[in-house]
Amino acid sequence: MLRSTLSSWREFLTPVSHKSTFQSTGQITPEEFVQAGEYLCHMFPTWKWNEVTRAVTYRDFLPREHQFLVTRKVPCGRRAEQFTNVRDAEDGADEDGWVIEKGETSSGGFETTVGPAGPKGPPNGNKAGAQDIDELLESFEIEEAEEDSDDIVAAAPRADRRYYDLYIAYSTSYRVPKMYLVGFQGDGAPLTPEQMFEDISPDYRTKTATIEKLPFLTSSVTSVSIHPCKHANVMRVLMGKVLQVKQRERAARAAEAQGVETSGLEKTPGPEDDWEDVQEDLDIGLRVDQYLIVFLKFMASVTPGIEHDYTMEGW
C-alpha cells in the first residue's frame, strides 16, 4: 500500500515532458500516447478510448476523450502456470519457491491450484464456511418446469474461463503506457487480486505486478497493474528489434523487388508482420504509432493466458 501511495504521488508530481525521445529512450510523450492510441483503436477496434463521463478522473495534459484506452472482457482460458510450470500446477504443490519468496502469504497466499475457478468460497475462507454458503445458495434454487425452457439452448459458461477488462493509461513518472487488469469469473463475478495474480506470469508476478485502484476512475475499482519501471527499457529493445527486422526485410525486398505483396501474407506469422503494410513508405523505420502494438506484445508475455490477440480471428 505504501508503495502504491508513493507511486501515485510521484505520478502526480512528475512534470510532463513533451519532447519526443521514444527511439532512444523507449519513453513517449502524452501526445505520442494519444497518437499511438489512435492507431491501436484503428487497427484493433476492440480497443477504445474512454467515454467522456463523470466516471473519469481527468488529467489535463491529455484531451478529455483520450484519457485512457480500454478493451473489455478479453477471454483468458488458461492460468499462467499452465504455460510455464505444468508439473507444479498439476501436483498442486501450493508453495512453489517464487510464491513463498514473496513473503506475503499471510492470508493464505496465492492459490496455485489451476482447477475450475467456479464460484467457490473466498480463497482464505475455511472449507466449512464455503460449504455452508454453497448449501445456502442451493436453498435458493428454483424448481423449473421442464417445458418452460425446453427451447433454450443451455450453454453454461466454461468454469475455467475468465475475462479481463484491460486498461492502458499514461504514466507520467515513467513516461510510458501502464497496463491495468480487472478480471471476472466466467459467470461474471469479479476476481480477487489473488485470482488475478494467477494470470500474471510467475516471472513478473512478484516483481512488477501491483494491486491498486484504477486511478483514472472516480469509483474505486481494484485492479492489478503492471508496474512500468522497466517498460521504457524493454520497449527500447523491442522497438530496436522491430527496426532491425524492418531493415532486413527492406534489404531483402530491394534485392527481390518482386513478390512484395504476397510475402507479408504468407509467411509464418511473427510479431513483426502486423504493421508491415503501413511501414513500407518510411525510411527511418519506426513510427510512434506502433508503440502500443509493440507494448501489447510485451504485455502478452506478462499475461500469457489473456488472449490479447483474439481479435485477430476477425482479420
Binding site: 505504501l2 467456479g118 464460484p119 453454461a156 463475478a189 481494484t222
Partner: peptide, 30 residues
C-alpha cells in the same frame, strides 16, 4: 433466470473481502 456455471438456477454470490475490505487490501498490497 440466469444460470450459474454449473447450469443451475441459483443466485450468484460475490465475496468482495479481498477487493474492497480496507484491512484485507492493506495485507495484500505491495
Amino acid at each position: 433466470w440466469e444460470r450459474n456455471v454449473q447450469n443451475k438456477l441459483i443466485p450468484k454470490l460475490t465475496d468482495l473481502n479481498s477487493l474492497v475490505n480496507p484491512t484485507k487490501l492493506a495485507e495484500q498490497s505491495v
